[in-house]
Structures are given as C-alpha cells and as structure tokens.
C-alpha cells in the first residue's frame, strides 16, 4: 500500500508539481486548495503526511498545523511546511505549531523527494 501524502497549497501549479513529483516517487497524493479544505479532507482519512504552504486564504498553514496536531490521529504525523519565506520567524512559528520540517520554495523535485524520504521513510 503506497503511503498517502496531502499537499495543501492555493497555487494549482505548485500542487501539480508536488503531486506529479511524489506520484512519480511512488506515493499517493491528495490535494487541498487551502487550510480549511485540507482540514476537512484530513478528517477521517488515512493521510500519512502533510505538505502545506503557509500563506493561504481561509486558513493559513500555521493554523492548519495546529489544528491537525490537535487531532489524535495526526498527533505524530510528519508535517512539512512549504514556503517562500525563508525568514526564520515563519519557520519558528511553524516549528512551534508542530511542523516536522520545511522546504524553501523554489525547490527542485529531487529536493522534495529527499525531504519526504527524510521524514516519512
């Protein structure tokens, strides 16, 4: 059974690139267009890992991480933040909310796969 990864991003092109890359690497991918959508889709799902943008409408990435961590099922799930904001403050906020790691945009497909392997195995 391939592991399922959710990508939450308001940019269709980023979702597509993440989806394409990860499917190619043998994972299943679920897409969500913002934080709220992601939270809805997480509910009752078997998602093994979450890759989320930080800057999103409706619910931003930090809040999404907090909300997901509050649920028993996703308490220990790897969560990676996807952000162009390489500034430390955002990273720290994300880490404090419970993120496992981060990827700074722009990134190459190999970098994405490397990080996923690192936190998901």
């Amino acid at each position: 059974m391939p592991k399922i990864i959710m990508t939450a991003d308001d940019s269709a092109s980023v979702r597509q690139m993440v989806g394409f890359t990860l499917k190619d690497a043998g994972y299943d991918v679920v897409e969500a267009v913002d934080g709220r959508d992601a939270l809805n889709k997480l509910n009752g799902s078997n998602v093994n890992m979450l890759i989320t943008d930080l800057n999103m409408p409706n619910m931003n990435g930090i809040e999404l991480i907090e909300q997901a961590r509050a649920q028993k099922q996703f308490k220990f799930m790897p969560i990676v933040m996807l952000t162009t904001e390489s500034q430390d403050s955002m990273k720290q906020q994300g880490k404090a909310a419970g993120a496992t790691g981060w990827i700074v945009k722009p990134f190459k497909p190999e970098q994405l796969v490397a990080v996923v392997k690192k936190v998901l195995g």
């Binding site: 308001d10 940019s11 092109s13 980023v14 800057n55 409408p57 162009t84």
Partner: peptide, 17 residues
C-alpha cells in the same frame, strides 16, 4: 492581504517553473 498573496504566489510558482 489578497494583493500581497496574489503577487507572492505569482512569484513563488514562477520561480519553480
């Protein structure tokens, strides 16, 4: 915020492609 986000996304995804 909407303006910023739109600009930000155009830039962020642009870099990847």
């Amino acid at each position: 915020g909407r303006v910023f986000r739109a600009m930000h996304t155009i830039k962020g995804s642009g870099a990847m492609f």
